[in-house]
């Protein structure tokens, strides 16, 4: 029983990180930009939230004012979103304006984000007094406070489904909102057209460049929230140089394919991936080598989905047609 509860909790926790990453990436990819920098932007979101929370808490401490809960949440939240979106802006400038290769740019962004975050993570630790010393306990408490603690539900439901910080539920809202935006609104239709066939969108009067920039920056901003959740909620407001954000970031990229570019499908499949991610860590008895095999699971599943989708050849399940290609109006 306990094992199942642990599993569900792990699935939801890691699933949330993956969901932010993948929903953001779906939005980006729908504009035709294949951003392999998701892990990097998640790192950027994570470190920005931690740094801003750290300095806010320290400023409050030194001036003797009690930090307000609203600011404890708002400052790291905005920092994470904006700094990750800044990563997206760099990516956009390189790939959209300068028409650089998207794969190379994305991979560079991952390396950049990871390096930057770990560098400043180390600096923050030093400022706080040594390795592993940094702690933003008040912020972390604000982020992980259960949103539904007032509900009179049986203990087991509370523990498995309703005992998380608000970011877990926000992820679901974001995924549903992304679905609604892409499929029900004019702007969503225009954005999809840009990703499918930018020349057509352009000829129809849709501003291709603006859509690509906005979708990429907002998408990476959303991905950055995954890093925020991991840093301030899951590991409790410290910096861990363990590469887990990167692993989850790659899972988010794989999940976009698994979900066939549909936010609603990424909603449940994120939890599945979170589960698959946690299974190998579950038992300490499993030896190292089989553990590595287990860690392949999400990727194996993604490959299977790729094979299945390719066999079915359903147009709606294919990636946006011009994914990965730069657009230049005057090019024939």
């Amino acid at each position: 029983m306990e094992i199942i509860i642990t599993l569900i909790k792990a699935a939801i926790t890691f699933g949330t990180v993956i969901m932010y990453g993948s929903v953001g990436e779906i939005l980006t990819e729908k504009s035709g930009n294949l951003n392999l920098g998701v892990p990097g932007t998640m790192y950027m979101g994570g470190i920005a939230s931690l740094a801003s929370a750290f300095f806010y808490e320290r400023a409050c401490e030194s001036s003797g004012v009690a930090p307000s809960t609203a600011l404890l949440i708002l400052i790291p939240f905005l920092s994470a979103f904006l700094f990750a979106a800044f990563g997206g802006l760099i990516y956009s400038f390189l790939t959209i304006t300068l028409r650089a290769n998207q794969n190379v740019t994305g991979l560079t962004l991952t390396i950049f984000g990871a390096g930057l975050a770990n560098f400043f993570g180390g600096s923050l630790n030093k400022l706080a007094g040594g390795v592993g010393q940094i702690s933003v306990s008040q912020t972390s408490r604000a982020f992980s406070a259960s949103l539904f603690s007032f509900l009179p539900l049986p203990d087991i439901l509370m523990r498995t489904l309703f005992n998380y910080g608000f970011l877990v539920y926000l992820a679901i809202v974001v995924a549903v909102a992304a679905h609604f935006f892409l499929n029900k609104t004019n702007a969503g239709l225009n954005l999809r057209a840009v990703g499918e066939n930018p020349a057509t969108a352009d000829a129809a009067g849709v501003n291709v460049t603006r859509h690509k920039y906005l979708a990429t920056c907002i998408g990476t901003g959303i991905s950055g929230l995954g890093g925020l959740f991991y840093t301030l909620d899951y590991i409790g407001g410290t910096w861990a140089n363990d590469g887990r954000i990167e692993t989850l970031g790659w899972l988010a990229v794989a999940l976009v394919i698994f979900a066939t570019w549909k936010p609603l499908r990424s909603l449940w499949s994120s939890y599945l991936f979170g589960l698959l991610y946690w299974v190998p860590q579950l038992s300490q008895n499993i030896k190292r080598r089989p553990q590595s095999l287990f860690m392949m699971l999400p990727y194996v599943v993604t490959i299977l989905v790729l094979i299945f989708v390719s066999l079915r050849k359903k147009k709606e399940n294919q990636p946006p047609e011009s994914l990965g290609l730069a657009y230049f109006r005057e090019e024939r």
Binding site: N186, L189, N190, R192, A193, E196, N197, A199, T200, A201, A203, A204, G205, V206, K315, E316, Q318, E321
Partner: peptide, 29 residues
């Protein structure tokens, strides 16, 4: 478009995965 000039290009400017109506209203409110 604002000047009411429309062009049908040799290579069709249509989004394959959209319906006819979606293609027609693309970029319009």
């Amino acid at each position: 478009h604002d000047l009411k000039i429309g062009m049908i290009h040799q290579h069709f400017k249509l989004v394959d995965v959209f319906t006819a109506a979606e293609n027609a209203k693309l970029g319009m409110r």
